[in-house]
Amino acid sequence: MASESEPSAAVEDGVRRRDFINIAAVSFAGVGTVAVVLPLVNQMSPSADVLALSSTEIDISAIQTGQAIKTSWRKQPVFVRNLTTAEIDEANKVPLGSLRDAQTLAERTKPGKENWLITLGVCTHLGCVPLGAAEGENRGDFGGYFCPCHGSHYDTAARIRKGPAPTNLVVPPYEFTSDTVVTIG
């Protein structure tokens, strides 16, 4: 009979039936737990409607040289700034080695459109909206943007120059759909 031969068979190859059942049961419970925990963790990630807001069209025809506007993309503020020639020159004059987060203005804009500086209006320190996009606001020591929360100064290429922020203002993914319309996202 099979059941009678079992104990001796188990001793021979060193594996007991009970060990196998234990390991199988615990592994199965483990896989089951993971299968339940994953959706419980993942439900916290941005939902489909939040992700659906991920592209925005902006008409930039009304922005005069030297002016900027604030708009919003994925519920985050975006700065669109039409740089003056003086501001462009100033940004290009800065030696790259002196920058905390070394990038040229050209790397931060589109070819032939160096005057259009488009960045998130989210300070890379702890996320305040820097000043400088609206008329008359403090643009900081380097003429770009100034974050009042903990005093970060950004230059005319929105690069971090002074204060606690670790990196430059983020350039979101965008494209010129025409000369006057930009699609962000």
Binding site: M44, S45, P46, S47, V50, R74, K75, Q76, V122
Partner: peptide, 13 residues
Amino acid sequence: RVWLLGGFAPDNA
């Protein structure tokens, strides 16, 4: 951060 907020900035989620 995005996971904690359920979005890119604090909002409904």
